[in-house]
Nucleic acid binder design. Sequence first.
DNA 1: CTTTGTAATCGTAACGTTACGATTGCATCG
DNA 2: CGATGCAATCGTAACGTTACGATTACAAAG
Lengths: 332, 332
Amino acid sequence: MANLKQIAAELSLSVTTVSRALKDGPEVHPATIARVKEAAKRVNYVPNHHGRALKTGRTLTMTAVYPMETQDHLSDLLKLPLIEGMTLAARQAGYSLSIYSTTPDDDPVESVQRQLQAGSTDGLIITRMVSGDPRVKLLLDRGMPFVAFGRTDLDTAYPYVDIDNEQIAYEATRRLMDKGCRRIALQLLVPGDQASAMRLSGYARAMAEAGIPIDQSLIGHGMFTMESSAAWFDRMLAWPDQPTGLACANELGLLGALHALGRRGLAPGSDIHIVTRDSTRLSRFLPAKIGVHFVDMAAVGRKLVEVLESRIVNPLGPVETVLFKGEFDPGE
Amino acid sequence: MANLKQIAAELSLSVTTVSRALKDGPEVHPATIARVKEAAKRVNYVPNHHGRALKTGRTLTMTAVYPMETQDHLSDLLKLPLIEGMTLAARQAGYSLSIYSTTPDDDPVESVQRQLQAGSTDGLIITRMVSGDPRVKLLLDRGMPFVAFGRTDLDTAYPYVDIDNEQIAYEATRRLMDKGCRRIALQLLVPGDQASAMRLSGYARAMAEAGIPIDQSLIGHGMFTMESSAAWFDRMLAWPDQPTGLACANELGLLGALHALGRRGLAPGSDIHIVTRDSTRLSRFLPAKIGVHFVDMAAVGRKLVEVLESRIVNPLGPVETVLFKGEFDPGE
DNA sequence: CTTTGTAATCGTAACGTTACGATTGCATCG
DNA sequence: CGATGCAATCGTAACGTTACGATTACAAAG
């Protein structure tokens, strides 16, 4: 409620002087600065966000576009440490972080466009990149600072932070082969998005190296939930030529697959081997031998904010791109 | 980039008329309204958030204060569906949701105060209520719309949405007793906060009814992580009078406890029984017989936003309070 | 031909802030 | 004693929006 005008009136100063005093302007008498700061503290003055934003054009707000698969099912657990990393880093950098949820019904380009216009944000964190993602061009054209979580196949340079999904899937597949697996099943999330495409590509590379032809029926798409993962894997386990190795999309996929195995009295480690990506370290606490690829998503979240901040502060600076590698833990 | 002034200049109208036309003001000629809307659409006009907020005092922003235990460990998984429920509901109600992370180092009252002053939000969602929570009085005094996730022991009325933790813990304890357990261990999260106090109270009620004295050494505080849960439970399993029942704080506590059991070659269901609160349905996919109390946190998140919106729209309206009950599933 | 009424549009001020140029007071210097 | 320089402070305008009262044009009524 307290504003510059009130402080100015109380101290018989002009609004200008008060404003300058609060930023330690060199033109203001030190004694006046002290008086102003004392008064500001006393009345609990905090600069009005909108007044400042309107004048300066800077809002000190970052917006993360948060894609949801459905409204009913639990999202990929990696989003929790990601959000925590982002919110904390944003706050420490002096920004507030706004979360903009989108459902599959929303047009992703339009979602971005709306954020652009309203001038309500200094920068955007976009996720769920797709091939030739049109949002990148749009944002570059408008000069809106942004950073992508994930990459896309464009010839223009743009800032991104990504996980090396290709390497993760390659390594996962190789590990399974080391255990003797040749029929290796692969779980993917969103059909057509970049992260899934990279996983598929890493898988294909490992298979090609081993000279094993790819069996499309071993590749599962849309494995968002424990239920869908369990049902899909259960179906495969009924085949005469059931898979002997499985690379899970994430923790939820793993839990679903373990559930399907358990119902048949099977456990991973002897006949069937399982590898998963895990960003919560949850799988390390399961009573099963599982190879785990850990990626520190809180660090990814912090990095996203860091890169975005540098874009905001210096829009013409060098375009940063960061690739996080995972750490593989074979699980005994 | 496009603003009212530009549209007005282009159509040779005043800014006022354009502004009114966009809201279908009855004083504007229908033909003019059509012209204005066409032009607005053509130049992709979206009202500037800060200009509007400054003038009207409404920001169309809600802020959720998000408490974090530590910067390193994964938070309670219930926060993921909670955030998803909140962000989606906020967006559908026309608000954007800002997440304000706080660490244990932050003074919770000061965190709230800062949000208040800056005028950057229309309402607050506060969590992690403590006994006699000073934030409630502060917010009521200032007339800032808010809703609490959780209750506190104050004689003033204020809006809240809560989970019936007392009932959850009572029922959990009773279920364990039904299985024959008398030495029942209880996991709690934050020492001193309201949710943990309620859990403890429900536990105590069930124990009193059964005439079993409470053994303080069976009550564990600060069980935020799988690691701490595992270590704590492991210590107890080494006792000659080890517990025969365990009520876990949440999914992470459960995984930690199962891990400790598994290392000793034990499984829940015969000698030792386990019950947990679960809001991700994760425990249903574990190969263990566990009693589960499910609470739909996405619904809680949506409700929080709904209650907050009604406070914002009608600050003098009736004070809503909502209590979510869980559903118990005995796990076979 | 002036008055009254009404539909449509306009102009000004204000929200709280900051940028920038103008102004004041006072000591110093030729 | 008037000119100059400097430190300190002030005033105005602007960001984009909306609220409110004023103004215009024109038709109908006296």
